[in-house]
Design a protein around this nucleic acid. Structure first.
Lengths: 330, 330
DNA sequence: GTGCCACTTGTTTACGTAAACATGCTAGCG
DNA sequence: CGCTAGCATGTTTACGTAAACAAGTGGCAC
């Protein structure tokens, strides 16, 4: 900056003003400064700027595994919205969704330069009242029950699971089986609870739950189990990938979908419309989740907003060809 | 830091030494300092540290769309490896893979605090000799032809496409059709060129290429085209998602896969093994790509390495059930 | 003509840290 | 017993920027 000032024949302060686009600079002076900047390839030093202003223009995202479809879409939306707001994203992956790992990530982020943090960790650990994140930094959490302690953005998973289950019941199925996500997952238990409540409300039997781990392969294994039974006509899988695994198992056992068994998924991943058969599923608006996360976080950073409360993003049931009325003989 | 020093009764410099784990500190003094740190919840200010040291302990990743499977896996590996090396990831998404966008992202990253940059943009823009990135920062590029100017990590797409094509020829197919990725994509043209070269080398006809855009839906549309023809027995799709779309189109037209048409994909995404039929595809080791990117970048940052050259990650053909010998009548 | 105000530009200072240098203490050796 | 080497610790300084304050210039109204 000093070099730029020398070349342009002005003070460093004036260079600073030009760099920050302040108004009180004479146009001719500004031109000289800009020319000098280009001449020596000046780039403002963000570290010094951050040191002076106390703002980093960066937000941290703590994620457990990028490899699930929804997390990635959410991250994409956050990153895009952040870029528009002039913020960059600092990504901290954690290897396991445990409290220790999460707190470690928080520490690392505390040492790095962020103005706020978004946590995307599908786990109940933050819901326990005895677990708290270090304070001092604005935080937004995705898909959690901790709305009383933090600001939370949540997809309306209960409504989605209810719609999926009800859809199958309305088609005439006596009951609906469920392939759940893993035990510790908040989203999994929300979907499962809502499925069960919907069955109970409709007076339907509640079959034993099969538990997967979100992967297609776990869905496949559950599908093999279900294929052995003769009484299954409808299955609600807690995500599209497991639904895909289910359908593979049914295909291999010559069970027609939806002829003999109807299948519903959850997520509406891009590929779902091209599964065979095209999958009826619950659409989640991950883009809206990401954008809202950023909006709430920036509000906190700017001090305009409370730091708790839950915002819910609605879901939509997308009917494709994997569901139908049960066979007349059933 | 000053507060910590006052509480511990030492100088700020000693606190700095403790914070950085230097050796020349008396254990009892160190304990006092650590106790004081915990007492007031001291966190080193990374901006000040970066200002002083010139190192940010952060690397930037410029990506075009997180929503493709491979990019995400690569990012995941980079982030994990970076965390282990004590670096954080700053993510800069770009809306379009154009030169303007890319340079803009580069500028933004230059203003932010990074020690090096990884570019994951499927596009030829960097290959043109008249396009250069601003210098001064170590750069690693994924899947590009610019190895003479930059350090590049590339999957061996040519070998993968060759293996896929040859696999189908060896099964007895007269020729192999191809559904390509979009025009501007480096990966797409590499796979397409290699497919064509393999056919020519085998003395097979080279059918007209169908062009998709990586999405399942574009694959579906191409599949509808192919379904109209009677002479297609084998198709190599440039990624798994388009292969899925192809198979949907074939299913809808009662064309058996692999009975009447064999299909091969590219990527080996997690779901591919549960497609119906399970997809024969070319496995890419995205984890290795990400790890190698980071390794090469850190070498450059530490000054141990040249800033150009190509590293190639091998691919593996995974044979599943979407390929078979052509029907005897064909 | 005088005084005041608006506007541009310069000067001083401080942000929190770590490098370089300086000091003081202890132990070991002749 | 005195000198020196080595180690723990303190002092000074600088990193690049932006806020706060100061100063200079010109125009306009009375």
């Amino acid at each position: 900056m000093a070099d730029v000032a020398a070349i342009a024949g002005v003070s460093a302060q004036t260079v600073s003003r030009v760099a920050n686009g302040l108004t009180n600079v004479d146009p001719s002076t500004k031109d000289r400064v800009v020319a000098a900047m280009n001449e020596i390839g000046y780039r403002p030093n963000s570290a010094a700027r951050a040191l002076k202003t106390g703002r980093f223009k960066s937000i941290g995202v703590i994620m457990f595994t990028l490899s699930t479809f929804g997390n990635m879409r959410t991250l994409d939306a956050i990153a895009t919205a952040a870029a528009q707001a002039g913020y960059s994203i600092t990504l901290i992956p954690i290897a396991l969704p445990t409290q220790v790992e999460l707190l470690g990530a928080f520490d690392r982020l505390g040492e790095h330069a962020v103005d706020g943090i978004i946590v995307i960790v599908e786990s109940h650990i933050l819901d326990r009242s005895d677990v708290s994140l270090p304070t001092g930094l604005p935080v937004v959490i995705v898909d959690s029950d901790a709305g009383d302690k933090y600001s939370v953005v949540d997809t309306d998973q209960a409504a989605g699971a209810r719609d999926a289950t009800r859809h199958l019941l309305e088609l005439g199925h006596r009951t609906v089986w469920h392939v759940s996500g893993p035990e510790g997952s908040f989203s999994a238990s929300r979907r499962r609870d809502s499925w069960e409540a919907t069955l109970v409300a409709a007076g339907a039997d509640v079959p034993e739950v099969l538990i997967g781990d979100w992967t297609t392969n776990s869905g496949y294994l559950c599908g093999l189990e279900l294929a052995k039974r003769g009484d299954v006509t409808a299955v609600f899988a807690a995500n599209d990938q497991m639904a895909l695994g289910l359908m593979r198992a049914f295909h291999e056992n010559d069970i027609a979908v939806p002829g003999r068994i109807s299948v519903v998924g959850f997520d509406d991943m891009q590929e779902a419309s091209s599964f065979w058969p095209p999958l009826t599923t619950v659409h989640q608006d991950f883009g809206a989740v990401g954008r809202l996360c950023l909006e709430k976080l920036l509000d906190q950073i700017d001090g305009n907003s409370t730091s708790r409360g839950v915002a819910v993003i609605p879901t939509t049931l997308i009917e494709r060809q994997s569901t139908a009325a049960p066979a007349s003989g059933a």
